[in-house]
C-alpha cells in the first residue's frame, strides 16, 4: 500500500499533465499551472527538511568532535548568521513586507560583500580548471583527437581579437578561411549538428524514462525495487 499510492499518484498526475498540453480548455489547461504551484509549495516546505538535516549532520559532527569538525562550525555559524539577518531584517525596514535588499541592511551587506565575492571566486576557478583539463585532454592521440584538437584551436583563437588579426590579410575570395569565420562555422554547423543529434537522443530517452515512471515500471526512485 505504501508503494502503491505514490505509483497511482504518479500515474494520474503524469497522464493529466500530458493531456493538458493538448486540451487548453478548463479544467485541463489550468491543471498544468496548478501542479506547478503545488510543487513549489511542497519545495518551500522541503527547505525545512534540508535545513534540519544540515543542522543535525553538522551539529553531530561538532558534538562528537568528528574529524574536521571546525568546518562544521563555520557551516552552522554561516547558516545561523545569514538566517537571523534575513528573518529579523537587521538594519533594514522591519515587518513582513520590509525590503530585504534595502541598502544598509545586514542581509544586503552580507550578500554584497561576502556571498557575491565567494560565489564569483568559485566560478572563476573554472578558468584555471579549463586550462589544466585542456592541457591534458587535447592531445593528438589519433585521427579523431586530432580533429578535436584543431577545432579547439580554431575556436579558442576565433574568440579573441588576436585570431582576427592573424588571418585578416587573406584576400576576399578566401575570407571563409579567416579564423573567426571558421570558428563560427564550426559552432554553427558541426557543433550544432552534433548537439542536435544528442538532444534528439536525450528527448527520446526522456520519453522512455518518463513512461517507465508513469507506468510504474521503474520505482527505484520511490525507494522500492522495480516491479
Amino acid at each position: 500500500m505504501r508503494r502503491q499510492i505514490p505509483v497511482v499518484i504518479t500515474f494520474i498526475v503524469g497522464s493529466v499533465l500530458i493531456i493538458s498540453v493538448f486540451i487548453p480548455h478548463k479544467p485541463f489547461g489550468q491543471l498544468g499551472e496548478n501542479f506547478s504551484v503545488y510543487f513549489d509549495i511542497i519545495a518551500v516546505f522541503a527547505f525545512i527538511l534540508g535545513a534540519g538535516n544540515l543542522l543535525r549532520v553538522h551539529g553531530n559532527r561538532i558534538y562528537k568532535k568528528h574529524k574536521d569538525w571546525p568546518y562544521s562550525v563555520v557551516t552552522v555559524a554561516g547558516f545561523t548568521v545569514m538566517m537571523i539577518a534575513g528573518l529579523f531584517k537587521i538594519g533594514g525596514s522591519p515587518g513582513i513586507t520590509g525590503d530585504l535588499t534595502e541598502p544598509g541592511s545586514m542581509f544586503e551587506d552580507l550578500y554584497m560583500y561576502v556571498f557575491t565575492p565567494l560565489m564569483a571566486t568559485m566560478f572563476a576557478l573554472l578558468a584555471f580548471y579549463v586550462a589544466s583539463a585542456s592541457h591534458r585532454a587535447f592531445r593528438a592521440k589519433n585521427k579523431e583527437a586530432t580533429v578535436l584538437l584543431l577545432a579547439a584551436f580554431v575556436i579558442l583563437l576565433g574568440r579573441t581579437p588576436f585570431g582576427v588579426e592573424l588571418t585578416s590579410w587573406l584576400p576576399d575570395p578566401l575570407s571563409f578561411l579567416e579564423i573567426p569565420n571558421l570558428a563560427s562555422w564550426i559552432m554553427s554547423v558541426p557543433n550544432m549538428a552534433g548537439q542536435r543529434a544528442i538532444m534528439v537522443g536525450i528527448a527520446l530517452g526522456v520519453i522512455a524514462m518518463a513512461l517507465r515512471v508513469i507506468l510504474g515500471v521503474e520505482r527505484t526512485y520511490l525507494g522500492a525495487d522495480s516491479e
Partner: peptide, 15 residues
C-alpha cells in the same frame, strides 16, 4: 543540493 532530492535519495539508499 535540494531538500526533496535528499529525502528521496535517503529513502532509496535505505531500501
Amino acid at each position: 543540493s535540494r531538500s526533496i532530492v535528499m529525502s528521496t535519495a535517503m529513502e532509496t539508499v535505505k531500501e
